[in-house]
Simulated scan of single mutants.
Amino acid sequence: MEYNVADTEDVPITDLSKIDEMPPDLDIRAVDEELDCQNTAVKIWYFDEGEEIGYHAHAEQEELFYVLEGTFSLKLGRSGEEEFVEADEGTFWVAAPKIGRGHRCVSEDGGAVLAFGAPAVEDPGLDPHSLSDEEIDEALEDS
């Protein structure tokens, strides 16, 4: 694949609550699958007020996020050093491999977040509380 183009509305919405192995129970648009991305994971996540992606980390994946709609409370940083930041429409944030990240929708009308992850590998979430400073520092040096 040299290139591909898709309109957001042409990307089907998947209800993750119907997939047991795939928490959280949110709706997503798997843009990366529609475009046949090879090196980047790209999803649009849809949230109702109070829904969240819990605090987690990834072993290899850097993630970049952008708030398309709504307001979110972010939890970012190493275990024991987490910061809470409010993010409105138009806000970007990024988390390196092995650095904790999570976000909760706090707007009444819900919200949507565009998420990019690279590399596009199967990288299940890690518990940031289980990572040592040495493991994190090594991952940051490698990225």
Rank of each mutant, 00 (worst) to 15 (best):
E2L: 09
N4Q: 11
N4H: 11
V5F: 04
E9D: 07
D10I: 07
D15L: 09
D20C: 09
P23E: 12
P24Q: 15
P24K: 15
D25P: 08
D25E: 13
I28S: 02
E34L: 04
D36V: 12
C37E: 08
Q38M: 15
T40R: 14
K43E: 05
W45G: 00
F47W: 00
G50Q: 03
E51D: 12
E51N: 10
H56G: 06
H56R: 10
A59G: 12
A59C: 13
L64R: 05
F65W: 03
V67I: 03
E69F: 05
T71Y: 02
F72L: 01
L74G: 00
K75V: 00
E82I: 01
E82V: 02
A87G: 01
F92V: 05
W93R: 02
A95R: 02
P97L: 15
K98H: 12
G100P: 00
R101N: 13
G102C: 03
V106W: 00
S107E: 06
D109S: 06
G111W: 01
G117C: 13
G117W: 04
A118G: 14
D123S: 12
P124K: 13
P124Y: 13
L131V: 14
E135M: 07
D142K: 08
D142I: 07
S143V: 11
S143Y: 13
S143I: 13
